[in-house]
Nucleic acid binder design. Structure first.
Lengths: 221, 221
DNA sequence: ATTACTAGGGCACGAGTAG
DNA sequence: TCTACTCGTGCCCTAGTAA
């Protein structure tokens, strides 16, 4: 059903900056030029597919677009943007954060490390740089997350399972690095960066310092 | 038929930078996940609607996406971009050109001038600045042209008819101006700018000089 | 008011096939 | 091979209506 994109687009349009909106099936129907019944069916199926969450309040229903619903929109945006050949470089601005120190543990795991070398062409510094993104750059971060990254497959060792990771080429002050997203993760306002260099030292970064990351959604950086 | 956008998107994707591609209905069918028959029907209807031009050559057909077809894609791009609240400021870079001097004639016409004052809030200098856009900014110009501009209605005087004009807010070196597109016009690689100031003098522009125009697709500039 | 179920019809789809 | 016509099926839409 290709109406999914159009339906989500329309709902997002009506919801505005927030992702929640009180909307009747009749209103959505008018906006989409379909019957009330069709709009109702669309809403039901969006709900079943997990793209929206809704609560039937006293009169109208309250609809919230889920992250997976937003993903549909961001993926379409990336696709048309790429097809029309618009710039694929996005700026992410955020504050350097104190990591939990677990980055070092993960990055050093042979199961990951070997793939970083093979697929990314870097032997990463054992640690991640955590960045809390500024509000106004959140949609850029979503675009990155919905673009095709380089996939690092998960693995198991004696103790536990390590999930897959998506990597997206980026640069900070010209230094080559990668933004990494765990495969199974919810949206957060922070992201992690790995690099061959020890970025904190190389760029003399302090906690809270605002930095700019230039990311690519087509891997060319 | 909502497949029009998807069909045009797919064709453009297969055509790449050029807008022409040799493609069989079977190939388009595979790419769109529909039957060959449906793809054929889609191609026929895109042709009838004027979105594409095609020539049935010896084997495969040669399909060219027309400007009106590209318009569909650029409008969708503008819409989703706006809904997801991405930056609406686009850079246009081009070379200052010798106008034909007719700009002065048009701009001075009372039928236009009164509307410029009322709708744009400027009493324009009688003349237009012609700019030939650089190749790599052509898609930005298309985006502007497919965004909602301010409409100046056409009129008649004793001699002839003057067509409508769409105006898009812009700035050159901080100076407020408007990019204008005649309503009935084909795509060209040049565009015209009007402003209260005499831009050529104000910015000390010479023919061939490369300048940057910052345009907006939501009128906020 | 709402949402959403059930019927019924139209239209779009794919199979078969001609040119 | 291609394109694209015809035809039959089925899906999706809207109207009516219950809750």
């Amino acid at each position: 059903m290709e109406n999914i994109y159009i339906a989500l687009k329309t709902i997002k349009k009506m919801a505005g900056e927030k992702n929640t909106v009180f909307i009747s099936s009749k209103e959505l129907a008018n906006e989409m030029n379909v019957s009330q019944q069709t709009a109702s069916r669309i809403i039901i199926s969006l709900d079943r597919l997990g793209y929206i969450t809704r609560t039937l309040e006293n009169r109208k229903q309250k609809i919230t677009i889920n992250d997976s619903g937003l993903d549909v929109l961001y993926r379409e945006y990336n696709e048309i943007s790429s097809i029309l050949r618009f710039s694929q470089e996005l700026k992410l601005v955020g504050a350097v954060q104190n990591g939990l120190g677990e980055g070092k543990y993960y990055i050093s795991k042979k199961g990951y490390k070997d793939q970083f070398i093979a697929k990314l062409g870097i032997d990463p510094y054992p640690g991640t740089l955590n960045i809390k993104i500024l509000n106004e750059y959140e949609n850029n971060l979503r675009r990155i997350k919905n673009s095709d990254g380089i996939y690092i497959t998960g693995f198991k060792d004696q103790q536990r399972t390590f999930g897959g990771v998506f990597c997206h080429a980026a640069r900070i002050d010209g230094i080559r690095c990668f933004i990494i997203f765990p495969e199974r993760s919810v949206y957060r306002d922070t992201f992690e960066v790995i690099s061959e260099k020890y970025l904190r030292k190389e760029l003399n970064l302090e906690n809270g310092e605002i930095i700019e990351v230039l990311a690519s959604i087509d891997g060319k950086l």
